[in-house]
Amino acid sequence: MAVIARLDRLVVSLKSKLKSLKVKKPYHKIEKTDSMRVEIKSRKAIKIIEQTLKIADSPKSKTYAF
C-alpha cells in the first residue's frame, strides 16, 4: 500500500511539473489588409443605413417632406 501511495504522489508531482514546463505560444495578431478594411467599413455603413431606414420607416418617427 505504501508503494502505491508513493507512486501516486510521484505521478501527481510529475504531471504538475510537466504542466508548468509547457510553454504557451504567443498569439500573433494578423495585420488587416486593405480589402479587409474596406469590407469592415462597408459592413458598418450597411448597418448604419439599415438602422436609419428602420427609424425612418417606423410610425412613431416624424418625417418632413421637403
Rank of each mutant, 00 (worst) to 15 (best):
K60M: 14
I46R: 05
H28S: 15
R43Y: 03
I48S: 02
E50P: 03
K60A: 14
D34F: 07
K60D: 14
I48L: 03
K32F: 05
K32C: 07
K44R: 13
M36I: 12
S42K: 09
K29W: 12
E39H: 10
A45V: 01
I49A: 01
E50V: 10
T52R: 07
I55G: 08
A45T: 01
M36Q: 15
I49L: 01
H28Y: 15
M36F: 12
E39N: 12
K44A: 08
S42P: 01
K47Y: 02
I46V: 12
V38Q: 07
S58A: 12
V38Y: 04
T33R: 09
Q51E: 06
H28F: 15
I30G: 15
S58P: 02
K41T: 07
I40P: 00
H28E: 15
E39A: 12
E50G: 11
I30S: 15
K60F: 11
I55A: 13
K47G: 03
E39S: 12
K32D: 07
K41H: 11
K29D: 13
K44L: 08
S42A: 13
D34I: 08
S35M: 12
A45R: 01
D57L: 09
M36D: 13
Q51N: 11
V38T: 12
E31K: 14
S58W: 04
R37K: 14
R37F: 07
I49Y: 00
K29F: 13
K41N: 10
T52M: 10
Q51G: 04
K32Y: 08
K41Q: 12
K60N: 14
A56Q: 07
P59F: 02
I49V: 08
K32S: 11
M36A: 14
S42H: 09
I55F: 10
A45F: 00
S58K: 07
R43G: 04
R43E: 06
T33G: 09
S35H: 14
K54Y: 07
T33D: 10
K60R: 15
I40G: 02
E39Y: 07
I46W: 02
I46L: 09
I40F: 03
K47N: 06
V38R: 04
K44T: 04
L53K: 02
E50M: 13
A45M: 02
K29L: 13
I30Y: 15
S42W: 06
D57R: 07
H28N: 15
I40K: 04
Q51M: 05
I46A: 09
L53S: 04
K32P: 01
K47V: 02
Q51P: 00
Q51C: 03
I49C: 00
I48V: 06
S42I: 06
I48K: 01
D57K: 09
K44I: 03
V38I: 15
A56K: 03
S35P: 05
E50Y: 10
I49R: 00
R43V: 02
K54S: 09
M36N: 13
K47P: 00
Q51F: 00
R43W: 04
K54A: 07
I55P: 01
T52Q: 09
A56V: 04
I48R: 01
T52P: 00
S42V: 08
K29E: 15
E39M: 09
S42N: 14
Q51S: 06
I46K: 04
I49H: 00
K32N: 10
